[in-house]
């Protein structure tokens, strides 16, 4: 029974990782930037969610604001911060992004206080059995939300004309442009969707922990980088597999290896081992 519980906790953590990392990986797939500030957008999603819920009392409204608001901020960050430095060597946008992330965290601390914001009337905290498995409502919502959102992303990219334009631009931007696709708009769309996922993840984690604090993005900021690298940088399917397996490995690892290494170190030992065997990650291509 312990194994099953550990496995489910791992999958739960993994699906949160997946929501954050999928956004990061589609940004990387299109623009080749390691977008560390993505974790800042995730935190912003947490704040939007808790603030709107505390004012209006509506979870749905909170979710909408968290997702769409963060999506719009994602576009703004792309336009003001990344677009002018896209042709620089890759460490330039990386350092810019890290600087931006530090500044964002500090801004949240100054604006909303360093102790964080809690839900005035914590939603989705009751236990709920489904098929003999007891989880909190919020945890079921987490699993459901990641299936719906990532499934939606798959549908969008596979079954719509918009997705076709998007995939064409990822494969060959110049060729896509010559077929009349506006690459700038594709980039906006890319950041919008990636940031929506980050915003949703932020709100969900805010509900699960009943706390949104300025530093809640610091662990995801580097963990998500490890995940997208594991998944092969730019591959959505690879990122999904990497996120879920990392969640499970961490949850078993902390029980069995906790004496020697902590959670982060276990994740990165796994990362380094995989990269030594497969230097370009577990999967390649979209």
């Amino acid at each position: 029974m312990l194994y099953l519980e550990l496995f489910i906790q791992g999958l739960l953590q993994g699906s949160i990782y997946a929501l954050i990392a999928v956004g990061l990986t589609i940004v990387y797939g299109l623009l080749r930037i390691l977008h560390v500030a993505h974790a800042g957008l995730y935190t912003l999603g947490g704040y939007f969610g808790v603030l709107v819920f505390n004012i209006t009392g509506s979870l749905v409204l909170g979710g909408l604001v968290a997702m769409l608001g963060v999506g719009i901020f994602g576009i703004i960050i792309y336009r003001l911060c990344y677009q002018p430095i896209l042709d620089q060597p890759p460490y330039v946008p990386l350092i810019a992004s890290i600087g931006l992330f530090i500044a964002m965290e500090e801004l949240y601390r100054i604006l909303f206080g360093s102790y964080g914001v809690t839900y005035s009337n914590p939603p989705l905290q009751d236990m709920m059995p489904v098929g003999g498995i007891y989880l909190r409502q919020g945890e079921w919502v987490t699993i459901l939300a990641s299936i719906v959102l990532i499934g939606g992303l798959a549908w969008l990219s596979r079954k719509t004309r918009l997705g076709l334009a998007w995939r064409a631009t990822v494969t060959d931007a110049e060729m896509a442009e010559s077929f009349g696709i506006d690459p700038i708009r594709v980039r906006y769309l890319n950041f919008f969707i990636g940031s929506i996922l980050a915003g949703a993840a932020g709100m969900i984690v805010g509900i699960l922990n009943n706390l949104v604090e300025p530093t809640m993005g610091s662990v995801p900021s580097y963990k998500a980088l490890a995940i997208i690298v594991l998944g092969g940088l730019g591959s959505v399917r690879g990122t999904l597999v990497a996120a879920l397996s990392l969640g499970v490995i961490e949850s078993f690892g902390t029980i069995y290896l906790g004496e020697v290494l902590n959670r982060d170190a276990i994740a990165f030992v796994f990362l380094i081992l995989v990269l030594m065997v497969r230097p370009k990650g577990m999967f390649r291509g979209m």
Binding site: Y28, P90, L225, V229, F268, I272, L275, P279
Partner: peptide, 10 residues
């Protein structure tokens, strides 16, 4: 980028 993240892992 793979190297950058590996060294971060270190």
């Amino acid at each position: 980028d793979f190297l950058a993240i590996t060294t971060m892992g270190v």
